[in-house]
Nucleic acid binder design. Sequence first.
DNA 1: GTTGCGCATGTTTACGTAAACACATTGCCA
DNA 2: TGGCAATGTGTTTACGTAAACATGCGCAAC
Lengths: 340, 340
Amino acid sequence: MAKRRATSSQRHQPTMHDVARIAGVSQMTVSRVMRGTGYISKDVRNDVVKAAREIGYVHNRLAGGNATYDNPIVGVVVPTMQNRVFTEVLSGVNEALNESGLRPVFGVSEYSLETEEDLVFDLLSWRPRGLILPGLEHTASLRKIIAQTGVRVAEIMDIDGDPISACFGFSHAKAGEDMAKHLIERGYRTFGYVGSQGGADLRATKRFDAFSRVIREAGASLVFNRSPEGATSMEVGRQITDEVLGQPNPPGAVYYANDDLAAGGIMHCLAEGISIPKQIALAGFNGLGFLSALPKLLTTTVTPRFEIGKAAASWLMHSDTTEAIQKTELSAKLRIGETT
Amino acid sequence: MAKRRATSSQRHQPTMHDVARIAGVSQMTVSRVMRGTGYISKDVRNDVVKAAREIGYVHNRLAGGNATYDNPIVGVVVPTMQNRVFTEVLSGVNEALNESGLRPVFGVSEYSLETEEDLVFDLLSWRPRGLILPGLEHTASLRKIIAQTGVRVAEIMDIDGDPISACFGFSHAKAGEDMAKHLIERGYRTFGYVGSQGGADLRATKRFDAFSRVIREAGASLVFNRSPEGATSMEVGRQITDEVLGQPNPPGAVYYANDDLAAGGIMHCLAEGISIPKQIALAGFNGLGFLSALPKLLTTTVTPRFEIGKAAASWLMHSDTTEAIQKTELSAKLRIGETT
DNA sequence: GTTGCGCATGTTTACGTAAACACATTGCCA
DNA sequence: TGGCAATGTGTTTACGTAAACATGCGCAAC
């Protein structure tokens, strides 16, 4: 019977047939027990489970995927792992998928649409049940391969635009607008903006565009605007805040692309003895958990990262393919703190 | 020829055979082009690539795994996604695997060895090339299934103990010892300890044990010791620091299980006008990036999280199965800041 | 008492790729 | 010029599982 191939140094792993032989049943019965589907009597189930445990058999969930066109996988693209926002999204995705025994397979795009495109090709090579992509902007090639393969796609974090089929998130335009209105209302008239990723963060740009439109319409002005390259951090925020305050006419308020940058601003002011918000007001974005530990509560927009990841994954699992294009808003909320 | 199964609503995806037919070659030639192996002439390669692009064919990397006993997967267990430490590890794993076109498939154990065991069973159902597990402590069932399946395992973050086959990390005992020695040397004689995960974080416990042994030997004493349940955060650190300072005889120095907790301590002192390190000294663990933005540089132990993830993944990819048990130290270094 | 349905199990076959082996062609050195 | 290695391509087969279909049994409704 020794017709096994001796491929490399890999030794033969037990299969359902091995379990079946020991339990005295057919391979198909083992398959049914492993998946908990179909009719199986208690006795047979026990025999199979016992046999499997005995020889250390672990269900191979990939082997059947070929024949059924279905792997227990969801492909996820995140722009970065440096920002908690996306690890929280991933966490939400993971939690939703856990319920169905699926797993996320992820890749990091570094905020590049070209890298995203490469990643999608790679993730499609796993024949996933669906994809989760950040934002609504993608390359033409990506859209083409999505259409050709017919893979289901959930776009997340944004609803300002046209989704491929379903999107889950909030309006960045509205978030930028709301923040601008709040600051105008508070009486600030000169503003600074600190962006991220050298402008490659398209959703931050959407916030900024709406923000600057509102302040322009209110007759106020933007006196500082910089988007440092690369990953953002408290440290970068601290440095740029130093720069902002070194200007001949520093702005009355600074809008940061995210909380890390803004928190760096708070730290800088704290260290330099600059009074917030008297000398300068600061506003962030995301509402990350660590803010509540800072000496001054930051004014920011709280976004439901975890929930967005969860909702997108749930949709991929539960909805059918015939559904129409849909936008699901999981809204972001302005939270006024002590820094504005 | 229409013998395709109409399984559910899944439409038929193009296969290598389809590409082969269009390009006028055999399926095997397409396979060689897709994987970039073997001898292929330039003309044929171009034809195949063109044909693939034309019909939107994407290489199915799971289909052959059955026959070759090899899937391009590494299973990774992390204790939590709440702490940057492990998202950085995951990031390092991801980067190392990228080079070989493998992907991590991860699960979160929540610091429970039982959950870890369940996860390992689940991850093994992917027939991964290897597993990356946190720490050297595992359940007996987990060890058994590892032995039975013969899957390769890299254990990370710890080297104080006996690895299954290879481990990558540093000595937590030494880290705790070094910190204790430093604080003793600075003249502190009464200490507090703030742990994590209600004591379920076994590596934090190792640091604490070594820490308390050294201070005991030096004739100093531990006057506060608490490990809050659940995830740690700056907020929790802030609350417990308040508690520490509310004691009748507060300690001269507090050792926190991680930087988030310690940073919360800094924030509390800052808000309450308590002088660091005069009134109280604070020490953390990990050396996370955000520390450099804080108003006071925290004394901590800097750990190479990213590098550990990368080294473990590299080892799984490159070493062969015959190698002996090995420990690879990627050392953690005491970094003295302004808080001790 | 026979019909039919729920339950429990088995048999056959499809899946898409990659290893192993086979074979043809080319070019170069002896 | 003959032989052999390097190059390029094809054929056959294995992989482990799950869908589809088949089968058999017991029991209740008529």
